[in-house]
């Protein structure tokens, strides 16, 4: 008897939880639809590529400090997801870490370049080669050059480390270096593939004779950046266009933006916003 009462009680409690759970979900969904009013409150949803995500989070945090009523939510994903989210209006702002493709222009999105990022070609610190030309880089990543001796190093096989298919960094890298030709992305099939900037860095740092590429913002002394055409990978060299392997960070909006989103965009281009950009990337203003 007691057992039965207990079990019925348990079921009731569980049922309550279920109802509460559902209720909560509806509430938060409703919150997102609250029209953003004059007091500058509301939610900004940013769908960012993984390269722009950390920057957007920092910008969002600083913006929220100024306007405590506003909540900025940054979702990670890929550049394509960023573009698509803006196009579908799933997000208020889509962020892509590459130029907008021709096929994506048809969405008619407004583009704002908020920062520039260089891609550093990095190699294992024990590697003897300091300087590569664009052509050498292209040949290494296509797989035509497979030994360091061909580019002035010691007689050792080159371990190529690349990013996964579809990655914004990979897309930018293969396009700029000419690894992407008429037949598409021709990255050698003998390349190790790592799913993130951090994983590429870790792999290159620990694998002898390896070469890879990462965002300049993520560069540290665990790996060695090579000079490209004799130019060092630095912010100045990217802004004066002498360093060749660089890409823009784009914010994309679809049609008329709400007041709060406009305020956020203004903030990003303000001195304060660009200072945050400058901590890791290259400010545009």
């Amino acid at each position: 008897m007691i057992k039965r009462i207990l079990s019925v009680g348990l079921i009731l409690v569980l049922g309550m939880f279920l109802l509460i759970g559902c209720g909560g979900g509806q509430e938060s969904a409703a919150e997102n639809n609250v029209p953003e009013e004059e007091t500058l409150s509301g939610t900004i949803i940013i769908a960012a590529s993984t390269s722009v995500q950390p920057l957007s989070e920092e910008l969002g945090a600083a913006f929220m400090d100024q306007y405590p009523e506003v909540s900025v939510e940054v979702q990670g994903g890929g550049s394509s997801v960023g573009v698509k989210s803006a196009a579908d209006k799933v997000a208020d702002i889509g962020a892509a870490s590459r130029e907008i493709k021709e096929s994506e222009k048809s969405y008619g999105l407004d583009e704002y370049v908020i920062a520039k990022d260089g891609i550093a070609v990095v190699e294992n610190p024990d590697c003897g080669v300091d300087d590569l030309t664009m052509e050498q880089i292209q040949k290494i990543f296509i797989g035509e050059v497979t030994n360091w001796s061909a580019v002035g190093g010691s007689d050792a096989e080159i371990v190529v480390v690349s990013r996964e298919e579809g990655s914004g960094t990979r897309g930018a890298f293969v396009e700029i270096t000419g690894v992407e030709g008429d037949d598409g992305d021709m990255t050698t099939a003998n390349a190790l593939v790592q799913p993130s900037t951090g994983a590429v860095k870790q792999t290159v740092a620990n694998t002898p004779d390896s070469i890879g590429y990462i965002s300049l913002g993520a560069l540290d002394n665990t790996v060695k950046a090579v000079r490209v055409e004799g130019v060092e990978a630095t912010n100045e060299n990217i802004l004066n266009n002498s360093y060749k392997i660089a890409r823009p960070f784009n914010y994309l909006t679809n049609g008329e933006v709400s007041e709060v989103v406009q305020a956020y965009l203004d903030f990003v281009f303000s001195a304060e916003g660009q200072e945050i950009v400058g901590q890791e990337f290259i400010p545009v203003k």
Binding site: S49, T50, G76, G77, G78, S79, S80, V81, E164, E165, G166, S167, G168, A189, N190, A191, L192, V193, Q194, P195
Partner: peptide, 28 residues
């Protein structure tokens, strides 16, 4: 190593079905 290439030996790098889905889904 996630290298999409038919392996020739135990020391070759390979990509797996699950790994490829997980890696590429976000950007696809």
């Amino acid at each position: 190593g996630n290298m999409p290439k038919v392996p020739g030996g135990m020391l070759d790098s390979v990509a797996t079905l699950t790994g490829t889905i997980a890696m590429e889904m976000g950007y696809a």
